[in-house]
Amino acid sequence: MAERTSSSRRAVVRAKAVTVCLALGVPVVPSAAAEPKAASGSVRLDGSSTVAPITMAAAEMFQEQHPKVRVTVGISGTGGGFKKFLESRAELRTDVNDASRPITQAEMDQAAKLGVEFIEVPIGLDGLAVLAHPSNTFCEHLTLAELKKIWEPGSTINNWKDVRVGFPDLPLHLYGPGPDSGTFDYFTEVVVGKPKASRGDYSSSENDNVLIQGIAGDKGSLGYVGFSYYEANAAKLRLVAVDNGDGKPRKPTLDSIRDGSYTPLSRPMFLYVNKASYARPEVQLFLDYLLGNAKTIVEHHRVGYVAFPEELYSIAGKRLREGKVGSVVAKGTGKDILSLYRQN
């Protein structure tokens, strides 16, 4: 009798564990099925250099467990990656495309023409923080237009009083990443309107920690870095809220980045998975590993992005397993990704 209770309790625990695993998107059945013979073969990824650190980190961790699976990550940019994802010959296509933007209509048309079915997987968020010196109390927020006025090529604003009427007479010193950085591309694209279009007379470094030190040690400073670098140094800096034109300035927080309200200075990143490739056990294993450990990988200090809520990863994992093709985000722009995925 006592034995029966304990064994039934164990069964309940096991059932719970399975439910938890399913909820987290951890593959219980597929990996168990694939375990007997060691997985081999190759998984080919290409695409955005912004997303590449996520997939490279995932590949590195994954290969420690599955040394026989060959994972390769190319860096051709989102658009260049889609060209390889949508090669006309099926054998030349990559399995997964890293994308720092949703797939475009033209790319979807091309996929339809070639008969490539793809599954969209939201993988993480890239947020930018606009920062000032902690003693700067007058600048609660900046509008996108003010940021543009400051940063656009040819801008001569070198004093806070020229930024907005009412700001004090204080020299303005700018800090930002150099032109090789994806953060630079992203900021200039969103704020100035054209990628890589920026004034050149600011203190630049490819090392975000140098920028943090610069901003923290300069009374008139203004700069931008990836959100994860701000988070690690929050005490030394003042976070400036950004008004995207709707009159509601927002500060980047894990929540405002996650729910998409901190736009346009945060953007979602995606993986596009070829459905035919996902049928291969090694591709399945890799993606299940990536989704099962998404938070660890995406927020790893070498990667430095913001992870989505676990719920989204489990929905994405389920969509992969069920083979639900097509782009969800393309159906409703402007809405937050989690609710879009809940609906579809």
């Binding site: 290409d46 590449a52 490279m56 590949a59 590195e60 290969q63 060959r70 994972v71 390769t72 990550v73 190319g74 860096i75 051709s76 390889k84």
Partner: peptide, 9 residues
């Protein structure tokens, strides 16, 4: 050619 690739193997 497309060899800008992160390869461990």
């Amino acid at each position: 050619l497309g060899a800008l690739t992160w390869v461990t193997a």
